[in-house]
Every structure is written in C-alpha cells, then in structure tokens.
Simulated assay, not measured.
Amino acid sequence: MVNTQKYVNNILERNVEKKTGETSQIRSVAKALMILDYLASCQEEVPLTKIAGKFGIAKSTVHGLLATLRDFGYIDQSPFTGNYKLGVRLFEIGSIVAASWDVRSVAAPYIERLVGQVGETVHLVVLDKGEVLYIDKRESNQSIRIVSAQGMRLPAHCTGVGKALLAYLPANELKRIIKTKGLPGYTKNTITDPQVLEKELELIRGRGYAFDIEEIMDGLSCVAAPIFDHSGRACAAISVSGPTARLKEDRFEEITSTVCQTAMEISQALGYKHNPSRS
C-alpha cells in the first residue's frame, strides 16, 4: 500500500525546490492539488488552520483555494464544524475513469481477435466532454495504416464511433453537445445540419451500427457499433477503420456484421442483457 502521508510530503518538498521562475498560476494549481492529496491522506475532516500549518501557506490563501475547490465540488465543508474533506466530484471523476479502463480491459481480447478477423485497424473509444476519446487502438498489418493514437480526441458528429454513442444519448444531452461543440465541416461528406444529424442517429439506433464514409478525412472510412454496460447504457464504442478503397460493398457488409457481433460480445461480458425490442 502507498504511504499517502510520505507521498504528500514528497510533493511538498519538490514544490519547495522548484525554481522561482514558475508562474503564480501554476503554483496555485500545485497548492490546490497538494491540499487534495493531504485531505486524502487524513481520511477525516480537517480544519483550515491545520491545512495552512501543514504547508506553511497563509490562511487567507488556503481559504481561497478551499473555497474554489468547494465550489467545484472537489471538497466538502461541514456546515457544523467548518472543517474540510474530499468531495463527491472526485468520486464521480474516479468512477468515470474506472469505467473507461474497465471497458478497456474487458474489450482487449475481443478487439485483438477482431483485428485478426478483418485485417484493419480497430479502435475503442468513450464519449468524454462531447468528444470521442480513444482509449485503445490495435493496428492491422496492412501497409497503409490509420494515423491515430490512444488518448486522441476527435469530434463525435463526424466519426463512426462518435455517432454510435451520440445515437443513445438523451435528447437534451445531444442538443447541449451540438450547441457547445457545433457541427464543423471537415470534408464534403460531413454532416453539419443538426436535423440531418438527428435523422442519421435515429437510423443508427434502428440498425445498431454507424459508419462514416469520408466524413472526417478524405479517403478514410469506418464502421462502428456501441458497447452497452450492465445498466443498458452505451458506455463505449468500437470501430474498424481503413482506406475507403479497401472497405467496399461486400467486404463492408462482412466487416459490419463482425463489428456488431464483437460489440455485443463485449457488452455481454460487461453484464448487458440484450433486449431484442430495444429501440
């Protein structure tokens, strides 16, 4: 087990040793993060004076940091004692991260098999802040490959995986993403009209898969399918991507069938109970 107190002390020592050329904004972020680590190590409510004393920071500065962290939900302040402890927002973020990586570990053998079956690049993504976040990628052995990487973000409206996830969002959440992110065009095939996109998403829900034919990049096509968790939520999506010249007609249909089957197998491994009447 990690010694959290020692870990916090090491962070503090490294912060003290940092060069004076560091900006005040970065130092403020570092102090806020150290406070979070310290509260985690204490595992109980802590008064402001103890936090200030621990780091040798003025009470007024600590108060401002705590107030900001509290306002964003990262810490809670007791209405009775005024002391501080970690907040529910950290639990929410941790749950999102845990869910993403759990999907990744469960999906790994399935997408490795999928690469062998179709001979094209396979991606695993989750929807994060209205964008698709690539959490796994398995390369094909083809000479022409897809330029992508784990940790990459792309717009949701013009990617097969993105549309596969947008299709299962509540209507108000979909409208919020469209309003926030917009529908910028990348190629002549990109959907830039909200009404057209909504109709496309309705079709995706009906058939159970999405595709993008040169919607984000000329010459690139993909087919994608959603992955559902035990609660029936579309928590991730997988796709097979390749040059449009290789993903044609009969082969495209074969790949679509294999992607959908793989997505369903991963969903079932996550505890999803398939309901044929699902809309």
Rank of each mutant, 00 (worst) to 15 (best):
I96N: 10
L48H: 01
T256H: 05
S41F: 01
K50Q: 03
I213V: 10
K54R: 04
L165C: 14
T81W: 07
G206A: 08
S95G: 06
Y272F: 14
I238P: 12
L65F: 05
L154T: 14
L114Y: 01
I216V: 14
A245P: 04
G242F: 01
Y272K: 04
K163S: 08
Q142L: 11
T256K: 08
A269T: 00
V259C: 15
L197Q: 08
A32Q: 05
K59Y: 05
D193K: 08
I75F: 02
L270N: 04
K54Y: 02
L165S: 10
A210L: 14
P79G: 00
V259S: 15
L197W: 07
E249N: 03
K179P: 00
R70F: 02
Q117I: 01
T121D: 14
L247G: 04
D193A: 11
P184I: 12
S140E: 07
I26E: 07
A236L: 10
I255N: 14
G219M: 06
I11Y: 00
L220M: 13
M264L: 14
I26K: 05
V196D: 12
H123A: 07
N10Y: 06
K179E: 08
L174H: 09
S277P: 04
V2H: 06
C158I: 09
G160I: 09
R153N: 09
I146Y: 13
P184A: 11
G82W: 03
P79H: 04
R104M: 09
H63F: 15
T192R: 04
Q142C: 06
V259K: 15
R207T: 10
K175Y: 09
G53R: 02
G151L: 05
